[in-house]
């Protein structure tokens, strides 16, 4: 038997824990005007990148976040020394707006 079918095991790869973006109920939004890296226009700080448990922040000035896998834990917002990351409820982005729900 393939050991991968006998025990919980995976090869580290993008999305191996599943589409963790589905878990999110608040999304991190970076305010570039407050981000240290963006203000310096250099890849500095990157503290959010270092702390993200899902490795879904890409380095940059400002860094960018892969919302396909960001699970919305808020650690990056908590750790950002400039307070540049806000956790905005998903409902405000419209993703949770159920389209037309038919009357039954």
């Amino acid at each position: 038997m393939d050991p991968f079918d006998a025990i919980a095991m995976s090869r580290p790869a993008r999305g191996e824990a599943g589409r963790t973006g589905d878990w999110r109920n608040a999304r991190p939004v970076i305010d570039a005007s407050a981000c240290v890296a963006a203000k310096q226009a250099r890849v500095t700080c990157q503290i959010c990148w270092a702390h993200c448990p899902d490795a879904c922040i890409e380095q940059g000035a400002p860094p960018s976040i892969d919302l396909e896998y960001c699970k919305g834990c808020g650690i990056c917002a908590e750790e950002c020394p400039a307070g540049a990351i806000a956790m905005v409820p998903e409902a405000e982005h419209g993703v949770c707006e159920a389209a037309e729900v038919e009357e039954r």
Partner: peptide
């Protein structure tokens, strides 16, 4: 050379 995640969450 062939790293694995052992015991990850299984949905």
């Amino acid at each position: 050379a062939d790293p694995r995640n052992i015991g990850p969450v299984v949905i």
